[in-house]
Deep mutational scan, measured.
Amino acid sequence: SRHTFEINGERWTVEGVSEELKEILRAAERASNDEAERLLRLALKLI
């Protein structure tokens, strides 16, 4: 499935992501810059 999210003013669209990964991306959208970066690094390990 496709998911579009915005982090630090940048929009991203990813396809074929699991519900778990979507949850991480949604958390990154709400997080501070440092926390968002940490969550994105974690998410990339899952891809």
Results as ranks from 00 to 15, higher is better:
Glu29Ala: 09
Gly9Asp: 03
Arg41Ile: 13
Asp34Ala: 09
Ser32Lys: 09
Arg2Asp: 10
Thr13Val: 15
Gly16His: 13
Glu19His: 08
Arg38Pro: 02
Thr13Cys: 10
Lys22Phe: 14
Ile47Phe: 07
Glu15Met: 10
Leu39Thr: 01
Ser32Pro: 01
Arg30Gly: 14
Leu46Cys: 06
Ile7Pro: 01
Glu6Asn: 08
Gly9Ser: 02
Ile7Thr: 02
Phe5Ser: 00
Leu40Ala: 03
Lys22Arg: 14
Ala36His: 04
Arg30Thr: 11
Leu39Asp: 00
Ser18Asn: 09
Leu42Ala: 03
Ala27Pro: 00
Arg38Lys: 12
Ile47Gly: 03
Arg41Lys: 13
Gly16Lys: 07
Gly16Leu: 09
Glu29Tyr: 04
Ala31Gln: 04
Leu44Ser: 03
Glu37Ile: 10
Arg41Met: 05
Ser1Gln: 14
Thr4Leu: 04
Phe5Leu: 04
Ala36Gln: 12
Leu46Pro: 00
Thr13Gln: 09
Glu37Cys: 13
Leu40Gln: 02
Ala43Gln: 01
Ile47Glu: 02
Arg2Pro: 11
Glu23Thr: 02
Ser32Glu: 11
Glu20Lys: 08
Leu42Cys: 09
Ile47Arg: 00
Ser18Met: 05
Thr13Met: 08
Glu35Leu: 07
Arg38Asp: 11
Gly16Trp: 09
Glu23Ile: 09
Glu20Ala: 10
Lys22His: 13
Asp34Met: 13
Arg26Phe: 13
Ala27His: 11
Arg26Ser: 13
Arg11Met: 07
Ala27Phe: 05
Glu6Ser: 05
Phe5Ala: 00
Gly16Thr: 06
Val14Glu: 01
Glu35Cys: 04
Lys45Tyr: 11
Arg38Val: 14
Arg11Tyr: 14
Ala28Tyr: 08
Thr4Gln: 08
Leu42Gln: 07
Arg26Met: 14
Asn8Cys: 09
Ile7Glu: 01
Arg26Glu: 12
Val17Gln: 06
Arg30Glu: 14
Asp34Glu: 15
Glu29Lys: 04
Glu23Ala: 14
Arg30Tyr: 11
Lys45Arg: 10
Trp12Leu: 05
Ala43Lys: 00
Asn33Gln: 14
Phe5Asn: 01
Glu19Gly: 07
Trp12Pro: 00
Val14Arg: 01
Asp34Lys: 12
Ala36Asp: 01
Ala28Ile: 10
Arg11Gly: 04
Arg41Thr: 14
Thr13Arg: 04
Leu25His: 00
Glu6Pro: 01
Ile7Cys: 08
Leu42Asn: 05
Ile7Arg: 00
Ile47Met: 13
Glu37Gly: 07
Arg26Ile: 10
Ile7Leu: 06
Arg26Ala: 12
Thr4Glu: 11
Glu6Cys: 14
Asp34Arg: 08
Ala31Asn: 04
Lys45Thr: 11
Lys22Cys: 14
Leu44Gln: 05
Gly9Trp: 03
Phe5Met: 02
Val14Phe: 15
Lys22Met: 15
Leu42Ser: 06
Ala43Pro: 00
Leu25Trp: 03
Glu15Gly: 06
Phe5Trp: 04
Arg11Phe: 04
Leu39Cys: 04
Gly9Met: 03
Trp12Cys: 03
Glu10Tyr: 08
Glu35Arg: 05
Trp12Gln: 01
Glu35Asn: 04
Asn8Gln: 07
Arg11Ser: 11
Lys45Val: 07
Asn8Asp: 10
Ala27Arg: 14
Gly9Val: 02
Leu44Cys: 05
Glu29Thr: 06
Arg11Trp: 09
Ser32Cys: 06
Glu29Met: 07
Gly9Phe: 03
Glu37Gln: 09
Ser18Ala: 06
Leu25Gln: 00
Leu39Lys: 01
Arg30Ile: 08
Glu20Met: 12
Trp12Met: 04
His3Ser: 03
Asp34Gln: 13
Ala43Gly: 02
Ala27Val: 07
Ile7Asn: 01
Arg41Ser: 14
Arg30Pro: 02
Glu35Val: 08
Ala31Lys: 03
Ser32Phe: 06
Leu21Ile: 15
Leu39Trp: 06
Glu15Phe: 10
Arg26Val: 10
Lys45Leu: 08
Glu15His: 13
Glu6Lys: 05
Asn33Arg: 14
Ile24Tyr: 04
Leu21Ser: 04
Glu23Val: 09
Asn33Trp: 15
Arg11Glu: 07
Asn8Tyr: 06
Glu35Thr: 07
Ser1Tyr: 09
Leu46Trp: 10
Ser18Ile: 04
Ala27Tyr: 05
Arg30Ala: 13
Leu21Met: 11
Arg41His: 10
Glu29Asp: 05
Leu40Glu: 01
Val14Ser: 02
Arg2Cys: 14
Trp12Gly: 00
Arg11Lys: 13
Arg30Cys: 11
Ile24Cys: 03
Glu6Ala: 02
Glu35Ala: 06
Gly16Arg: 05
Lys45Phe: 12
Glu19Ala: 06
Glu23Asn: 10
Leu44Thr: 03
Arg26Pro: 00
Asn33Ile: 11
Glu15Val: 14
Leu40Thr: 03
Asp34Leu: 09
Arg2Ala: 14
Lys45Ala: 10
Ala36Arg: 13
Arg2Leu: 15
Leu42Asp: 05
Arg2Lys: 15
Lys22Ile: 15
Glu35Ser: 04
Ile24Glu: 00
Val17Thr: 05
Asn33Pro: 15
Arg26Cys: 03
Lys22Gly: 10
Glu19Thr: 10
Glu29Arg: 03
Ala28Phe: 06
Asn8His: 06
Ser32Thr: 14
Arg2Ser: 15
Glu20Ser: 03
Leu40Cys: 04
Ser18Pro: 04
Gly16Val: 10
Leu39His: 02
His3Trp: 13
Phe5Pro: 00
Ile24Arg: 01
Glu15Asp: 10
Glu29His: 07
Leu40Ile: 10
Arg41Tyr: 13
Glu23Trp: 07
Leu21Asn: 01
Glu19Asn: 11
Glu20Trp: 12
Arg38Trp: 09
Glu20Gln: 11
Ala31Leu: 09
Ser1Trp: 12
Glu10Asp: 07
Trp12Asp: 01
Glu29Phe: 05
Ala43Cys: 10
Arg38Glu: 12
Leu21Thr: 13
Trp12Ala: 01
Ile7Met: 03
Thr4Met: 04
His3Cys: 13
Asn33Gly: 15
Val14Asn: 02
Arg11Pro: 06
Glu37Met: 10
Val17Asp: 06
Glu6Gly: 01
Leu44Tyr: 06
Leu42Ile: 12
Ile7Phe: 05
Arg2Trp: 14
Asp34Pro: 14
Ala27Glu: 13
Glu19Arg: 05
Ala28Gly: 02
Gly9Glu: 03
Glu29Cys: 01
Thr4Tyr: 09
Ala43Asp: 00
Glu29Gly: 04
Thr13Pro: 02
Asn8Met: 14
Arg38Cys: 06
Leu44Asn: 03
Val17Asn: 05
Ala43Ser: 02
Ile47Gln: 03
Glu37Tyr: 11
Asn8Pro: 00
Leu42His: 11
Ala28Glu: 02
Leu46Val: 06
His3Lys: 03
Val17Pro: 13
Val17Trp: 08
Leu40Val: 07
Ala31Ile: 03
